[in-house]
Design a protein around this nucleic acid. Structure first.
Lengths: 292, 292
DNA sequence: GAGGAGCTATAGACCATATCTATGAATAAT
DNA sequence: ATTATTCATAGATATGGTCTATAGCTCCTC
């Protein structure tokens, strides 16, 4: 390289300490090295930068001019290095996650709490959306990772399989007669079914399953949140198709019960998506580590 | 050195151009060198700074953070280098000269005009004072050079001998009878003598000369400027002791004439003083070059 | 003054490493 | 497919940064 920025660091310390010897100590160099470095700078500029005497060095007029620029420059570099250290230590930075509201609330929440507790300096951005939206966000670089239901097939994405979820039909006291019974699909269809809105992944999966058995699943009620699925089933408005793990509390306390079917409902996995071949931010990789 | 600031320059160009190849071209390096440099930075921080793809590179979140600092830093360095080039080319800077008013006006003025014309970017500071004051200014670093009458004996100073000046006695039409005559010192003392103020170098020199011949020189009138010395002599108030070169115009036009003496008055030299062992500013050394 | 304790400058040797060439691998465009 | 980009990697080379040893200078102390 034609001119070496390293020399500015030496100059900075020499000017700051007023002594080549002290500069050398600060830089873990020997005094002759510093002397040589300053001389190089002076020769390069064709301008004397320091007055030398037996007490040390002081800046010349021109040296002082140079210092006024270099000082700022060096301070910025120091700040930059501190910032990078903070980013590495997860004392600073941000983590942008995309996912569905229900996954945030019922699956990620404890991890998010934990992560935030351990790394309060990292700002969390949660972006909810449908799976295709999340994928778009990822590809546009607006989020670091997406948490969605598998399967995902996209060669640009890397998907890590996470927790296994089991969807099921649940209802409340209004249909207590079904408790313990093992229903067939057509029997189930005689009851009002409550499903999540049309474009959800779970909805598509269960609709397809019914179709494979020759039935058409058309919901009595269609809602936009898991909360409402639970609430409506409890109130007796019908049978909700929900993720079992998300109604653990209600099943436990008995306000909902699961309806046994004579067919096996397919489990789904949660996938953590990131861009393939793109390095993860420290925060993102640390979070993924935590979740898995 | 433990960490190399040179890498930041490479990082800056890679980020700025979005391409390692372009960065290499800008830096007159090869692409593998740049690739290697970036890799080093990333390993040093333990953080990926760029996403690489077949079109080039783009900053990661953390890389963008680093860039926000480094960009400013690099801009400052560039400005610093431009400033230094300007100082070297004498397009910028300042020149601080100490001297007596009379030397500024009658000796330095044309040089100052010339210098200012050639280097309009350099600010001129003229500080007038007595010789001891000028020396103090020099030692305090408040001026770059001093222009005074020789001899100067001070081991801290370097004195360059400049123009030779000859002091002499002059008067106007009122004492026309003296024109062409050759006076002795005691004869001169019968006329009213006008001298410069007590603490001037020229005054001390001529007083001492009279003393060496056994006479006491006491002025009729004592003035504070060379202008008044000239003016008073012209108006016929007495015989002024002035520097011949400074009254060249008046001698030429005949409004003053020089009085011949039977003794040789000692010539003095103008000296240009600078601090010994201290590098001169570009402006100062250029000006000294011009004057000599 | 002599001697000591600072400071910086200089000379010469050494080796770390920045840089190069040559090549590979991956992607995008023709 | 083929060509033209991009960046990554490996290995060789020589530049030049850094060291040790020493000298020169100034200031201070005895």
């Amino acid at each position: 390289m034609n001119n070496n920025y390293e020399l500015y660091k030496v100059f900075y310390w020499a000017a700051k300490t007023g002594s080549l010897t002290k500069a050398a100590n600060n830089l873990y160099l020997t005094q002759p090295s510093v002397s040589h470095a300053i001389k190089q700078l002076e020769e390069r500029f064709g301008i004397a930068l320091f007055y030398r005497n037996s007490k040390g060095v002081t800046l010349t007029q021109e040296g002082a001019m140079l210092y006024s620029y270099i000082e700022q420059s060096q301070i910025l570099i120091t700040l930059a290095e501190e910032k990078m250290a903070a980013l590495k230590n997860l004392d600073s930075g941000e983590l942008r996650i995309g996912g569905s509201d229900s996954l945030f609330k019922h699956y990620l929440l404890p991890y998010l709490e934990d992560f935030h507790h351990n790394h309060p300096g990292i700002r969390l951005h949660l972006n909810h959306g449908t799976t295709p939206e999340i994928i778009t966000f990822l590809k546009e670089g607006r989020i670091d990772l997406g948490v969605v239901r598998m399967p995902i097939h996209d060669s640009q994405l890397q998907v890590r399989e996470s927790i296994k979820l089991q969807d099921c039909f649940v209802t409340g006291a209004r249909y207590a007669e079904l408790k313990g019974a093992i229903l067939s699909l057509d029997k189930l269809l005689q009851y009002p079914v409550i499903l999540f809105s049309r474009n959800s992944r779970a909805r598509m999966a269960i609709t397809e399953l019914f179709q494979n058995y020759g039935y058409t699943l058309k919901p009595e009620i269609e809602v936009g949140s898991v909360e409402l699925l639970i609430e409506f089933a409890r109130k007796g408005l019908g049978i909700s198709y929900v993720t079992r793990e998300f109604v653990a509390k209600e099943l436990e306390e008995g306000s909902l019960f699961e309806i046994q079917l004579d067919v096996q409902l397919p489990p789904t996995h949660v996938g953590i998506m990131t861009m393939r071949n793109m390095p993860l931010s420290r925060a993102a990789s640390s979070f993924i580590e935590l979740v898995r």
